[in-house]
């Protein structure tokens, strides 16, 4: 399949002796938004942090199975390479407090010691800020600290920072859970627009949000992938009883 960006096969995850993901199989197609849903503690964060190998920063973690980015197993690549190709947006906006807005956007290059001409940097910064719908708001203050922005703007700055690296996939872990409703809907609009540039995997425990912005949806429960399908289909005719119970608010 040409369109398949990510392919997770027989993937299990352990914190020490505790298994928190059980034999996950999931394939993600290009330029689609996939929502990962499930009650708190079911392993959503763990799953997406494994996709860019962020879990390796946590001690005592172990994985089984493979995760393919196009045709390469990410566990056979250098984690640095994996993380440059797979961007991440965190639950709480986390712009670099020591850097101004411009430097925040270009940080991926500076951190990695990639030297660029100023004019190339300018292009990347403007392009990324436009894509994250922040350009008009910050174009006159590019050299001010990113931490002075509102929470929603900070989160869009973090999205711009990830987009600047031109990732194949963008992982978003409950990117709106720390934001107010207005900022949330702004980010939701943004995600819909970004679909044409980048494939996205978004963790959310807000079902309305999943319904509004995703093409596909995954339901995780107690570390198991219970159901995966088109969002509309999963919401209207869930195949598994547990999915149905979750969607009708029986748990989580």
């Amino acid at each position: 399949m040409e369109n398949q960006v990510l392919n997770i096969q027989n993937f299990s995850f352990y914190y020490g002796e505790t298994q928190v993901l059980k034999d996950i199989n999931l394939s993600i197609e290009k330029n689609r938004v996939t929502a990962i849903m499930g009650p708190s503690g079911c392993g959503k964060t763990t799953l997406i942090r494994a996709i860019n190998r962020m879990h390796e920063l946590t001690e005592n973690t172990r994985t089984e199975g493979i995760i393919k980015l196009y045709n390469e197993d990410i566990f056979e690549l250098d984690p640095i390479t994996v993380r440059r190709k797979i961007g991440m947006v965190f639950q709480k906006p986390n712009p670099f407090p020591t850097m101004n807005i411009y430097d925040n956007v270009i940080a991926g290059y500076n951190l990695n010691g990639i030297k660029l001409k100023k004019s190339d940097k300018d292009i990347i910064v403007e392009d990324s800020l436009r894509k994250s719908a922040l350009w008009d708001e910050v174009k006159d203050n590019l050299y001010k600290k990113g931490t002075f922005l509102s929470g929603g703007q900070q989160q869009r700055l973090c999205i711009a920072r990830a987009l600047a690296m031109k990732p194949e996939i963008l992982l978003l872990d409950e990117p709106t859970s720390a934001l107010d409703p207005k900022a949330t809907s702004h980010i939701e609009e943004l995600i819909k627009e970004l679909r044409s540039y980048v494939t996205m995997l978004i963790v959310t425990h807000n079902m309305g949000q999943a319904a509004r912005i995703s093409n596909d949806a995954v339901f995780l429960y107690l570390g198991e992938l219970v159901e995966h399908g088109k969002t509309k289909k999963l919401f209207t005719t869930p195949q598994d009883k547990r999915t149905e119970e979750y969607l009708t608010g029986k748990f989580g």
Binding site: I80, R84, G87, A162
Partner: peptide, 11 residues
Amino acid sequence: DVKEAAYSLGA
């Protein structure tokens, strides 16, 4: 979270 942001960019 600030350190993680940097790691997630490939630092």
